[in-house]
Simulated scan of single mutants.
Amino acid sequence: MGTWHLEVMKMALYMTFPVGLFYYFNRPEIFEEHVTKKRREIMPLPNIEAMEYYKKAIEEARKRKEVKWEDELAKLDNK
């Protein structure tokens, strides 16, 4: 068995080791470049022209659907 000095040293190690690892691995400058690169591979930046085309197409589809609903409501009102 060790003396109380050994127990204090062990307790200090048990407490500082996880805290030190937490501090080291939670600093963004360590992994920021890797994460940003992987994110760009998985989700590339959107193409602005394509996004505008899709927005216009969605808006046109909504307008056609609204016109169709209005025609159907007008038919129901006339009956």
Rank of each mutant, 00 (worst) to 15 (best):
K68A: 11
R39E: 05
E70Y: 05
K75R: 11
L6N: 09
L45R: 15
A12T: 08
K68H: 15
H34C: 06
K79D: 11
P44E: 02
A50W: 09
M43S: 07
V67E: 10
P28Y: 04
Y23L: 09
A50Q: 10
W69C: 08
D77F: 13
E32C: 11
T16L: 08
E7G: 06
E72I: 01
H5R: 15
N26W: 01
W69L: 13
D77S: 15
V67M: 12
E32W: 07
A50Y: 14
I48N: 14
Y24S: 03
V35A: 03
V35K: 01
K68G: 07
K68Q: 15
D71M: 15
T16Y: 12
R64K: 08
P46N: 01
E29N: 12
K10C: 12
A74G: 07
V35Q: 02
T36I: 15
Y54F: 11
L76T: 05
F22W: 06
F25P: 00
K37L: 11
V67P: 00
P28N: 06
L73G: 00
Y53N: 13
Y23N: 04
K10A: 10
F31R: 03
L21Y: 05
I30G: 01
E7N: 13
K65L: 14
T16I: 12
I48F: 11
D77G: 02
K56G: 07
K79G: 03
F31E: 03
V67K: 08
Y14R: 08
D71L: 12
M15V: 14
M11A: 07
G20D: 02
K55F: 07
E33M: 02
M11S: 11
V8P: 00
N47M: 02
P46W: 00
K65E: 14
P44R: 01
M11T: 07
A12S: 12
H34K: 15
G2E: 05
K10L: 06
K55I: 03
F17L: 12
W4Y: 10
K79F: 09
W69E: 13
E32R: 13
M9Y: 04
E32M: 13
E7F: 06
K37V: 10
Y14M: 05
L45F: 14
L73R: 04
M15E: 04
I42T: 06
P28T: 07
F17W: 13
V19G: 08
L6I: 09
K79R: 14
K63W: 12
R27Y: 04
K75Q: 09
M51A: 14
K63E: 13
K38I: 02
M51G: 08
L45H: 05
K75M: 10
L21V: 08
K55A: 06
W4F: 08
Y23D: 02
E41R: 00
N26Y: 01
T16A: 03
M51C: 05
L13I: 11
E33P: 01
M9C: 10
H34R: 09
M9T: 13
I48P: 00
K37S: 14
E72F: 00
G20L: 00
A57L: 12
L45Y: 08
H5V: 12
W69Q: 15
H5K: 15
G2K: 06
A74N: 13
L45K: 04
E52H: 08
V8Q: 07
E60I: 04
